[in-house]
Design a protein around this nucleic acid. Structure first.
Length: 153
DNA sequence: CGTCTTTGACCCGCGC
DNA sequence: GCGCGGGTCAAAGACG
């Protein structure tokens, strides 16, 4: 499978930013100490800088539970939680790349406790960008894996 | 009616 | 001890 981390690493490594590994300190939230080490995955997604919403629809469903602007990035960072399962410890952080406002960096924290809502049996859906008729959000669906190219416009 | 998004405020941790 | 920053939760509103 594609190593998004590697790809992402290569891209970010060139510019180097404060997007390295975040100290996953289990503070404030008394979550189960099943997995002391959460899996961190970073994905680079190309999208439009005009996209007012950072709702990235991958193979899972996410529910945005917060948004904050950090000092490191002028762009707002969005926090997502897996809304597919009630006990999904997976969290996702999405933020626009500082070096390229047209690139979204999604940081996945943990693994899913349930199967994907979308059956990847077919796998005939490479990469698609679906813009909701409401025009309020843009959905990136790369169910096919590795179809998106963070480089070249 | 249910679901999801959005914004603000609050809390905690760390540093100095 | 105080300040800054980051992160999360909660409530309200909107839309399907």
């Amino acid at each position: 499978m594609l190593s998004y981390e590697g790809l992402l690493n290569d891209k970010i490594g060139g510019h180097d930013h404060h997007f390295e590994n975040q100290s996953f300190t289990n503070s404030g939230v008394g979550m189960s100490m099943e997995e002391p080490r959460a899996k961190l995955s970073r994905v680079c997604i190309r999208t439009d800088p005009w996209d007012s919403s950072l709702v990235v629809k991958d193979r899972y469903e996410w529910r945005k539970y917060g948004q904050k602007v950090t000092r490191d990035n002028p762009s707002p960072r969005a926090y997502f939680k897996c809304s597919c399962a009630p006990s999904c410890p997976v969290k996702k952080k999405v933020q626009r790349a500082a070096y390229d406002r047209s690139i979204l960096i999604a940081t996945y924290e943990g693994e899913h406790n349930h199967g994907q809502p979308f059956s990847s049996t077919i796998g005939s859906l490479p990469s698609f960008i679906s813009i909701n008729p409401s025009g309020r959000m843009i959905t990136l669906d790369f169910t096919g894996t590795g179809s998106f190219r963070p480089e070249n416009v």
